[in-house]
């Protein structure tokens, strides 16, 4: 198991955002957290990367408890993060955005990452020098995913990669995620729009009100989800 979340609690002030969820992410798989706004999907992702503290429970990555590891060290352990709402660095060029995900890895590794990402996402080549803040939402999403991938993480966290995007971009980003999967990257992603996301996932968890309601293989979730109120 690459990532194991056990009985995780997250609180904002007095409000409990996650009340004891457990999620398993096996190596090489793509795990989807599906649920409405406020279900606790982003809180889960943010707790894994360390942007919000866990109020209880454990997050175990590759056998090591992340409990006391600060946010900036988790990335170095091999966790890539593409935040909700993309949050690219607006004044940095597209290339600089991507390379900021590969800080301190040396010119050779950086060049390798850049060459690979440029080959997967031709868009990055066209816009290389443009400030990322000027790109469209879909373009920014590609930049955010590339930035998260620049260090070739073992686990990629994708928080709502389709949010607010047109179908043409959803298709492109789906293809991109499949390309990353082909490389052997393990993915933990969240999505409100279950249909396109389920095409990518191997396993799924349905979340609601800070709890996991259902879990299973992607086929089981699809059957549930299509019949269910969660969509």
């Amino acid at each position: 198991m690459l990532l194991k979340i056990e009985n995780l609690h997250v609180r904002y002030g007095g409000i409990e955002a996650l009340s004891g969820i457990s999620i398993d992410v096996p190596e090489g798989e793509t795990v989807l957290l599906v649920g409405a706004n406020g279900a606790g999907k982003s809180s889960t992702i943010n707790a894994v990367i360390g942007l919000v503290p866990a109020a209880g429970g454990r997050i175990v990555f590759d056998g090591a408890d992340l409990g006391s590891v600060p946010c900036e060290r988790r990335a170095r352990l091999g966790i890539g993060y593409s935040p909700e709402g993309r949050r690219v660095f607006p004044t940095l060029s597209v290339t600089d955005n991507v390379l900021s995900g590969a800080f301190g890895l040396g010119r050779v590794n950086q060049k390798e990452a850049l060459d690979w990402l440029f080959s997967v996402f031709p868009l990055l080549v066209d816009r290389a020098k443009q400030p990322a803040g000027q790109l469209s939402g879909g373009q920014q999403q590609i930049v955010a995913i590339s930035r998260a991938m620049a260090s070739f993480p073992r686990l990629l966290l994708l928080d709502e990669p389709f949010l607010g995007l047109a179908p043409v971009w959803i298709k492109q980003i789906s293809d991109a995620i499949l390309a990353l999967r082909a490389r052997g990257t393990t993915v933990l992603m969240t999505e409100q729009m279950a249909r396109p996301a389920l095409k990518l996932a191997t396993r799924g968890y349905v979340m609601r009100g800070g709890e996991v309601r259902r879990s299973g293989t992607v086929e089981e979730i699809r059957d549930l989800a299509l019949a269910d109120e969660y969509l």
Partner: peptide
């Protein structure tokens, strides 16, 4: 340079920059 890029990234969005492994300390 890497450092310069990291500094500009921290100026743009500190939380996300830290989540990318950029060390404010």
């Amino acid at each position: 340079t890497d450092i310069g890029r990291a500094l500009r990234a921290l100026a743009d969005d500190r939380a996300v920059a830290m989540a990318q492994g950029l060390r404010p300390k």
